[in-house]
């Protein structure tokens, strides 16, 4: 189960990297960046996951109050930080894309003038 979760989260991150390399549309690159973030967040949460452990909230239903009962809460707290930073990055990136669109009139990354033989 661990292998499946690790592999799938890393594959999700790799899908994001593939999109960032292969696409030329700026919005698609940003979406790929968000997919990459999701994969990394899943990887971090999986690093603290355990099948027989509980949600890290102390309730009266747990028999033996001990650290063994809970999944690792530290990656979850770090992923919360990661999500908020991802929101900030997305915000500023969208503003930059809007500026780019207003300046050039399209959303595609163009080759510069001296490379005019390049692909549209």
């Amino acid at each position: 189960m661990f292998t499946i979760l690790y592999t799938l989260s890393l594959v999700l991150a790799l899908i994001g990297i593939f999109g960032m390399i292969s696409q030329k549309n700026l919005i698609k690159i940003l979406i790929s960046l968000n997919i990459l973030e999701t994969g990394v967040n899943l990887f971090l949460v999986t690093a603290g996951w355990s099948a027989e452990a509980n949600v890290p909230i102390i309730t009266g239903k747990l028999g033996l109050p001990s650290a063994v009962n809970f999944v690792d809460p530290l990656p979850q707290a770090l992923v919360l930080t990661s999500i908020v930073i991802g929101l900030g990055v997305t915000t500023v990136a969208l503003a930059l894309i809007l500026r780019y669109y207003r300046k050039t009139g399209n959303l595609t990354l163009e080759p510069s003038e001296f490379q005019s033989g390049g692909e549209r």
Binding site: F2, Y6, G48, W49, S66, A67, V68, P73, L74
Partner: peptide
């Protein structure tokens, strides 16, 4: 299997 297997949180800072 991948090396980062299930660890008990007792062996960590958390």
């Amino acid at each position: 299997t991948l090396r980062f297997g299930p660890h008990s949180p007792t062996s960590r800072v958390s």
